[in-house]
Each structure stands twice: as structure tokens, then as C-alpha cells.
Amino acid sequence: MAMLEVKDLEVYYGMIQAIKGISFQVNEGEVIALVGANGAGKTTILHTITGLLSPKKGSVIFEGKDITKIPAHKIVSLGMAHVPEGRRVFAQLTVYQNLMMGAFTRTDKNEIEESLRAVYKRFPRLEERKNQVAGTLSGGEQQMLAMGRALMSKPRIILMDEPSMGLSPILVNEIFDIIQSVSAGGTTVLLVEQNAKKALSIANRAYVLETGKIVLDGDAKDLLNDDSIKKAYLGE
């Protein structure tokens, strides 16, 4: 059974249909990539899954439960974390406070402490800067903070929206290494990326989006070698 299943999703912004009937599924333990050009609807899909947007039609099923109508603030405690596009860290809170916001719905003090140590171990730079206000971090550090904040909720699935956006090539590699290690740690990953080549290189399977529809899907390695994909998205 799929861990996360999106069925016949249709999403509108006013009169404009952004998502035109999309279905896909994510199995436990997988890294799934949603790739496609700017405006294809990738971010809209993630926002609809976590309840920041409501679909006009279709449903979102997580671990057998229909979460389509569950409000956004109740999603994280179900075991689903969302690292939004543009990091969206709380600029005026410290790094430590941001991480604790990630554990907002948890009450188990000792286990939160444990998660915090795990996040600091994964991102040593966050520990170095734990008392620094998040708005003063560099872009790469903010991305790490956004990921660390999401991990603080102890998610079984993590949705990541354009984690490599605006980062230098070295940092992009670092971020993708981290995504792989998060996946290796047992967390399922749904990854949205414009950097299709990078995303396909770490994903198990992928869906290719074009203006609100899935136009292609399959094994990530096959897609990486697909001629039409190479032309349209990999610039080869």
C-alpha cells in the first residue's frame, strides 16, 4: 500500500486551474522526485498535500487516512513535514528557537532533546550558530535550518520544495547528500526540484509535470537517460 497517495487532484487559483487532475503515489522508504519547469504546479501540489491550499477535486491519502480536509496545522503531528520553498525560517527567532518550533506539537521532552542532538549532529553549523537570529544566516544555512526544523517533528515523510534553489553548486551537492542521508535514515522523501538532473540522480522514481499535468513518469534512472527529458529538462 502506498504511504502517500494523491488521487485525481484539481486545484484552482480563482478561475485559473493550476493542477489539472494529477494522481501519483509515494511508497514507504522511497525518494520520489516531482520535476518540471517553473509554473508546472509542483509547489501547488505540496501546498495542497499539507493543507495550505484546498483542492477543488480529488483527495490526498496518507497512511490510509484521507487528509484532504484536515487543516494545515494538524498535518505535522500525523508524521508529515514540509520544507517550504524559499526556506521560510522565522527570521527573528534564533536558530535554536526555530528548531524548537519544528517540535511544536511534541510534548516528550527527552525525545525532543534527542532529536535536537541528532539535528545538530547532522548540521554542525546549526549548533555553532544556535543563538544567532535566523535572518542573519546565509542561504545555505537557512536551508539547513529549514530541513532541521522539519526533522524536529520526527516525520515519517518529508516534503521538500526546491531545496537547492539559489545555492552555489558546492552547497547544492551538500544539500543533496543530506537528502540522501535523511532517506537512508528511514524517512520517505517527496522532492520537488527544478534541478531535474540532481533530483533524478538521487530519486527512485519521478513524475514529470507540465502545466498542471503529469506527462511522464517512471524509474528515475530511465528518465535520466530518456532523450526527450534530456532535451527538455537537462539541457543536453
Binding site: 499539507t50 493543507g51 495550505l52 487543516p71 494545515a72 496545522h73 494538524k74 498535518i75 505535522v76 503531528s77 513535514a81 514540509h82 517550504p84 521560510r88 525560517v89 522565522f90 527570521a91 527573528q92 527567532l93 528557537q97 524548537m100 518550533m101 519544528g102 511544536f104 506539537t105 526544523r149 517533528s153
Partner: peptide, 24 residues
Amino acid sequence: TKTGQAMQAVSEDKGAAQLMGINV
């Protein structure tokens, strides 16, 4: 306090605050 920090989080970014599980 946690509630106080949640207030700051909501004041900065309501969407991101909801993703943390904060009831706006």
C-alpha cells in the same frame, strides 16, 4: 515560552507557522 514564540512565528509567517503545527 513556547506559546510566546509561536506568536512570533505566526507574526512572521502564518503559512510556515501552520506547517509547524501552530493553530493560527
